[in-house]
Write a protein that binds this DNA or RNA. Structure first.
Lengths: 234, 234
DNA sequence: TATAATAAATGTAATAAATACGTTCATTCA
DNA sequence: TGAATGAACGTATTTATTACATTTATTATA
């Protein structure tokens, strides 16, 4: 439970719902998490997921999108519900259940100014500080979910720039699975899925030779999905 | 949103949470769903999932367990959260979000009298009638979830009696995946997982020769899980 | 009491997928 | 021009999946 606009009066005999966002990014080989300092009592000033109360007239998923846009400036972001957290005592203030949702964002695209203005900060996934309430649990669950999901759905691409190299993609999967992958087998496997479009450009930031850039072939992915294709990766 | 004890007065400017249960069973080769007739207006008398409002002092998961016990008499049942349904307009009466949870029960163990008393009824999964609100969507989502989950976790056993035969198990997986499996390969695969204990008894209901009964080896399953074993089935 | 009927149980060969592993290539910088 | 760096690539081995046909234990009945 986290409130960004603290203009609401809370009472004890009502039930509230919060939308909390686990915002993942990926940069220099590491998975990142966007956190911010809680604005409201209790626990004001503590690190927290980004969230908001769900308004009475608003869809739960909209609440999450609203707060995501508020903080990062981003719209049309990949977002999935993780699960609802409904322990009666999870928030000491009043009864509030939280629907946690995770977002995968391209870390090169977010609005840096806006993030800073909100006191938000990117943490390396294995340097996440103590968070308010059950937010650490949410992060752990979301990470597990990401791990599972990445194996069967090509969601990794949501965390990379539109154009990426195969070594970058491999780094990402290594970060997600937390183990090293063989570069020859990885390349072979990925290319065999037929969802990468090779571009004529190279990215030379990683080596002198430079690596070819690719983009994800959404169209063919959809086609293959419908034909019952298995997208197991690594 | 479904209410069993209709003794609560609902207002428009509050948010409510319901716990709705998708209760799966398995009998004579078919997946079954337990439904009942809604007790409260609006839509009184319509087929509905079994559910209840979440009480202010109660965990969401407890609410689901409470109503499950109320209807089936069963406790300690396999139950998992599916997801929260949070569309603002999902319930025409007032703002109510639902945390859907699915349960896998051994259809031979439930309390028949109790179920009848509550006007509940087992439906074949592909003969589910029109349900109130978004309950049909919940059923579809739960079924999809079951399908996915059954491939990587041995949850199928929760739907069978403690003692079962390999042909029964195969029938179950065939019902879940909705395709036929080769009996030789299925048996080989299952036995290779080392989580079945062969008993000396036979079940003769299915054939003259009779098929050996097995039970699930929870202990070894836990051991193998910890060692990072892959439980992919079929 | 022999025979027919039924589903259970079993093995092997062929194919496909995953893994392990070393060398050459393109480019930049000194 | 040559030393250094990561990118790109192929093959052999192992492992897993698939396809497929016969025998067995038992009961019911002729």
């Amino acid at each position: 439970m986290t409130e960004i606009t603290s203009d609401l009066y809370r009472v004890k005999d009502k039930l509230y719902a919060a939308a909390d966002c686990i915002i993942f990014g990926f940069e220099s080989g590491r998975i990142k998490l966007l956190l911010f300092r809680r604005r409201v009592e209790p626990l004001k000033g503590e690190w927290s997921l980004i969230g908001s109360f769900v308004r009475l007239e608003e869809d739960v998923s909209e609440a999450a999108k609203r707060v995501l846009k508020e903080i990062t400036g981003l719209e049309n972001v990949y977002m999935e519900q993780l699960k609802a957290y409904g322990k009666a005592d999870r928030d000491p203030g009043f009864r509030c259940l939280s629907i946690a949702q995770y977002a995968l964002i391209r870390i090169n695209e977010y609005d840096e100014e806006l993030v800073e203005k909100h006191g938000a900060h990117w943490f390396d996934i294995d340097e996440v500080p103590d968070l308010v309430l059950d937010h650490n649990q949410m992060v752990a669950d979301a990470l597990e979910c990401l791990k599972q999901k990445a194996r069967y759905q090509p969601i990794g691409f949501e965390l990379l720039p539109e154009k990426f190299t195969i070594p970058q993609l491999q780094q990402l999967y290594e970060a997600i699975y937390q183990r090293e992958l063989d570069s020859r087998n990885f390349r072979k496997k990925l290319l065999s899925l037929k969802v990468l479009i090779k571009l004529d450009e190279k990215d030379k930031s990683g080596s002198k030779r430079g690596a070819f850039l690719y983009k994800f072939d959404h169209e063919n992915y959809q086609k293959l999905l419908k034909s019952g294709y298995n997208f197991e990766i690594a």
